[in-house]
Design a protein around this nucleic acid. Structure first.
Lengths: 130, 130, 130, 130
DNA sequence: GTGGTCTAGACCACT
DNA sequence: GTGGTCTAGACCACC
């Protein structure tokens, strides 16, 4: 399905979560789709099952998937994704910090904003290709 | 000088670094200014001296300050800040991740970009006030 | 007869049991009524026969139904339902936990009790409609 | 601090969570209080550190505590407890199920409600004693 | 010392 | 087979 980068700053379970989130919000895994089982996925990406389990558990808490013992894990309707309150606040702070990081490198307002928009465009293009 | 937020997700030494970086790039600590000693600063913000020490060491490595043994630490000319290479790459990735986080919450391209620009404006205003 | 919610936190065999219990205590399945066979029911609600089997077995143990080999399963007289002993104790503990859950969300005594009574009223109305 | 009941239907990490939640909402652990470290608590209740860790992590996600590497875990202001949305909905469903369980034991509306109120009173008294 | 992550391997209930 | 929990023991960054 995807690959884990052991050199990434992101922890493994976060990489798993983000990869699945991406596939869900981009519609590659539509509502109701059955995800690979914990054991399957852990094998295919060469990661301990507990680590995948942790990712699935957290995805469930955040409303992306639901799990049924004995049956597997399934994609929730997109409307159930918790995109409010603390989750949104944290995302906004992450964005604010990213901008401040630019400023701390000595970049000015305009340059920082221009660079950010460039990055956004690249991501949009990458997303559309998939 | 500034305050540490014990609740922040950022580690304490990062908060110290970022606060000093902010003061430097915004000109509140112009080139050549002497920074408070590790002991002084650690007292005034109620933080372990080892933690402040680590922040100073990192700031020196990144070209924000230099230290003269026995005399203290001083602000480098802004031109020496390395806004290239690994630091810039990491900053760009941070920005990319922040944008992806918006998308992962189910926000579309336009909405994400609009929200990002809103956040940028807020930061600009806050910076100008200081 | 009824529907299974694959998203429910309850396991499937519990859902089967509870639906049948509801029909029994509400008189929709009076004493002596013949239940659908395991195979029939499993087909009509699209559930594995083993799962329905397990539900029937448990219902028999708890005194809701009895089975005559070769003939099928039948509803017991309501007087045989054991509303005492372990089942009652567990039900009481379930209620206690539900109340404590309210308190753990930071709700006060009065608010928790008021909310509980509101919920009870809704259930009563729903039951009467059937 | 408290004890784990290995025979409880609740899992160990849930028992840990609920015990701490109780202490927090009842004011025994006021805002800002430092919790025992993961290792300390795991020793004192004879449970694997990973299990306590899991409880702490979930308490953090639910807004009861926050954790700082190297410092420990601390009680959040009560206002940050997430008592809305999915959390409240789940609590309400738990209460609804508890009531339905009474009905399924053959108890009538009045009897069920009376019993529930009795249980609530007992919990209130127990809480006040602590 | 602290919390956080990961692995390995076991057991359980449900389907 | 499935997800869920628990234990044991290791490693890391931070304070």
């Amino acid at each position: 399905m995807f690959e884990i980068d052991p050199r990434s700053r992101k922890s493994i379970y976060e990489q798993v979560m983000d990869n699945l989130k991406d596939a869900i919000v981009m519609g590659q895994l539509p509502e109701g789709t059955k995800l690979p089982s914990v054991r399957e996925l852990s094998k295919s990406i060469s990661v301990n099952p507990n680590t995948v389990q942790k990712a699935y558990r957290e995805l469930e808490q955040q409303g992306y998937i639901y799990s049924k013992t004995g049956l597997g894990s399934f994609v929730c309707p997109r409307s159930e994704i918790r995109a409010e309150g603390p989750e949104l606040a944290r995302a906004e702070e992450e964005m604010a910090e990213a901008f401040k990081t630019f400023l701390r490198l000595g970049m000015g307002f305009e340059e920082s904003e221009r660079k950010a928009l460039e990055i956004f465009e690249i991501i949009k293009k990458e997303s559309d290709e998939k």
